[in-house]
Design a protein around this nucleic acid. Structure first.
Length: 704
DNA sequence: TTAGGGTTAG
């Protein structure tokens, strides 16, 4: 048999999927056993379709190893993402002086660079780059260039990546795409979009589906929905709609930019859907708080026989957490266990989160304990879960355990521990955590800054909150809103208004719905009634912010306090969204102040319907009756509280003096200094009633 | 002879 005939046979066999073993014996029979071409081809077939071990056997048996054979072996490890084994083999290749006929070529170099990128081994990668620079031909090889750019972009060195890119006089679409992807993955989203437009507009290179995926992914993070429409048009014109990854990334763009309807339509329109499409759509519903729809979709996916992966499990569990649906959550837990995903760190974290949000702390802890290895995300889920369940004191213990397990917090974990700590309100602890923030270099994180402002505000130290605020250079809308809320908490409405004024005049940031909520609440807590009403007006008419149920609740409270009960009622009637209990609650409170029994009864009726187990509202109504001496009605309400077995929720107050934390409830008589405390309280009350400026006296008493 | 770029969750 001639070599040429065997060559043809071999290629036919490759295409028809004939096994490497059969081919091997065929080659041995024909006497071409040491032909380097056949050996290389067989080696790659073994590695691809049989096993790496078989490939190694052939490799070991071959006395004359060409660079092609080494490359084939290296590539097999690379395909399996065995980066360290790839580099180890490369080391052997270099020391195999007697058997190696040629020097490593550009193909070898590109594989080695890929392994360096996979391990983020910049030092070795740079050495290889030095080797490449010495060889003109290799330096202009676009395959090598691609791997070099990838290496630098994986290591976060986009400047170096750009230098390599600029060495090429005519980079092709793949090189452009790697640059766009690099910018996108490193969070330089605007640069990714600019680079893309340079490629298309200036260089006239037509993007392919892969380029578009990276562009769309950048737009999704920028919440740039408009660009999605352009890309969608292009996709249809070019007939790219069959590329499922591309349509998935478009779906994700609409999902993240809040266009739920468009996303749902695109999902329906897609020719083919894979597990990524389903997870994206489920995640879209979760993000937009449509928990029921998300759960329905998850179950539909399972029923249609789509094989779930770890990510779709996470989305399903998030839906359960949002819906507070423990039953469905447990079902997904069982399914995850059956499919072997319960040891996956992301799935376990989602399980912890789900159980915590469904108030099942024991189950959450159980999942946490069973995790084979723990990362910072799951520690953060556990400690914030405790805080959500009113057990913030446990969060502190978890944080300490996390540190002693040598897990360093990231910015998210830091935010969670700070907010857990703010639930406790212990200033001494806040100061310790602030110290930790500075020592670990989180000081410049905007998210951490916001949490610190909130923490100090809640621990009663407004001046520390202001110090943190003033230290932040780039004051965005979130930071400004947090500071306004801090002033509000301390009854400093005027300061809150001043800061808002500064924010608007200096154009530091544009106020959003949260800013207005903080501001309205600050006005309400400081008795700045007319100012609050004006702010609401500015919000709706100047800033075109749609008032939420929370905004309306505060407005009702403000109007109610000055006796404008009819106007307050009008606001409730005009609300576009379903009226939440707290809005009626604000009206009921106002009715008590102004003795409006009729309207109070209307508010109470609605409240008893919406929130039948809240004892506070019954007590409010009975107080209204008591103040207007309607004893019969009052007794009816009191009886109904008893019959329903409603218990009053106790409010626990905590105050920190020196290094000691004192806690007490209303009418508490357990404190050792009880008599003195009540005496001071009585004096303060007298002063309040006599209209003396209390603030200065309080300063005198507490030595503030 | 061997060949470079991609989508979802945390």
């Amino acid at each position: 048999m001639k070599r040429r005939d065997l060559f043809v046979d071999l290629f036919r066999a490759c295409n028809s999927g004939k096994s490497a073993t059969q081919l091997h014996s065929q080659i041995l029979r024909t006497g071409f056993a040491y032909d380097s071409f056949f050996v290389t081809k067989l080696n790659s077939l073994y590695a691809k379709y049989t096993s790496i071990e078989e490939a190694y056997q052939l490799f070991d048996e071959t006395p004359q190893r060409t660079v092609y054979l080494w490359n084939s072996m290296l590539r097999s490890h690379c395909r399996e993402k065995q980066w360290k084994r790839t580099l180890l083999l490369f080391k052997h290749m270099l020391s195999d002086k007697f058997k190696l006929e040629q020097r490593p070529d550009n193909f070898t170099v590109s594989i080695v660079l890929k392994a360096c990128a996979g391990l983020k081994w910049l030092k070795l990668g740079k050495m290889v780059h030095g080797y490449v620079k010495k060889d003109q031909k290799m330096a202009l090889d676009m395959f090598v260039g691609a791997e070099l750019i990838e290496l630098y972009s994986e290591c976060g060195k986009m400047g170096e990546a750009l230098k390599v890119f600029q060495e090429f006089p005519k980079p092709d679409v793949v090189l452009w795409t790697i640059m766009v992807t690099g910018y996108e993955l490193n969070g330089y989203l605007e640069e990714a979009v600019t680079f893309f437009s340079r490629m298309v507009v200036k260089e006239g290179i037509s993007p392919d589906p892969v380029t578009l995926i990276s562009l769309v992914s950048a737009c999704a993070q920028l919440r740039h929905g408009m660009l999605g429409n352009c890309v969608l048009g292009f996709v249809i014109r070019r007939g790219f709609e069959a590329d499922i990854s591309l349509t998935n990334s478009l779906l994700n763009l609409y999902a993240k930019s809040g266009s739920v309807k468009i996303a749902a339509n695109l999902f329906k329109w897609m020719i083919e859907r894979d597990v990524v499409s389903w997870s994206s759509m489920i995640a879209c519903y979760v993000r937009n708080e449509a928990a029921v729809k998300a759960l329905e979709l998850f179950n539909e996916m399972i029923n249609q026989g789509v094989e779930p992966n770890a990510i779709s499990m996470v989305s399903g569990l998030q839906a359960c957490a949002l819906a507070c649906n423990l039953e469905e959550g447990k079902k997904i837990h069982d399914l995850a266990a059956k499919k072997g995903f319960d040891t996956d760190v992301s799935v376990s974290t989602a399980l912890i989160d789900m159980y915590m949000k469904c108030f099942s702390t024991d189950e959450a802890v159980d999942v946490f304990r069973k995790m084979p290895w723990k990362d910072v995300v799951c520690w953060a889920a556990l400690l914030s879960g405790y805080a959500q369940n009113g057990m913030a004191y446990m969060s502190m213990g978890v944080f300490r355990d996390m540190l002693s397990n040598e897990t360093q917090p990231d910015a998210v974990a830091m935010v969670k521990i700070l907010s857990a700590s703010s639930e406790l309100g212990i200033l001494q602890q806040a100061i310790c955590l602030h110290g930790y923030v500075i020592r670990s270099g989180f000081e410049n994180s905007a998210f951490v800054g916001v949490s610190l402002i909130e923490l100090y505000s809640k621990c009663g130290s407004l001046c520390d909150a202001v110090k943190v605020f003033e230290g932040i250079f780039d004051k965005d809308v979130v930071i400004l809103s947090a500071m306004i809320a801090g002033y509000g908490m301390h009854g400093q409405g005027r300061e809150a208004l001043k800061l808002f004024d500064w924010m608007v005049k200096s154009s530091a940031a544009s106020p959003n719905n949260v800013t207005f909520l903080s501001l309205l609440s600050a006005c309400s807590h400081s008795g700045l009634i007319q100012e609050g009403i004006n702010i609401f007006d500015i919000m709706v008419h100047e800033y075109k912010v749609d008032p939420s149920s929370e905004h309306c609740g505060i407005l009702v409270d403000l109007l109610g306090r000055i006796g404008e009960l009819d106007k307050a009622m009008d606001i409730i009637k005009q609300m576009p969204t379903p009226v939440q209990p707290h809005v009626w609650g604000a009206l009921l409170g106002a009715c008590r102040i102004h003795q409006n029994i009729e309207m109070g009864e209307v508010a109470a009726k609605n409240l008893f319907h919406l929130d039948p187990n809240h004892s506070g509202y019954y007590i409010l109504l009975s107080n209204i009756y008591a103040l207007s001496e309607k004893w019969v009605n009052m007794e009816k309400i009191r009886t109904s509280i008893r019959e329903k077995g409603l218990k009053k929720m106790f409010g626990l107050s905590v105050i920190e003096i020196g290094n000691e934390v004192h806690s007490f409830v209303a009418d508490d008589k357990f404190h050792p200094d009880c008599e003195q405390i009540y005496e001071l309280l009585r004096q303060l009350e007298m002063k309040m009633r006599s209209g003396v400026k209390l603030f200065h006296d309080a300063e005198f008493y507490f030595g503030a």
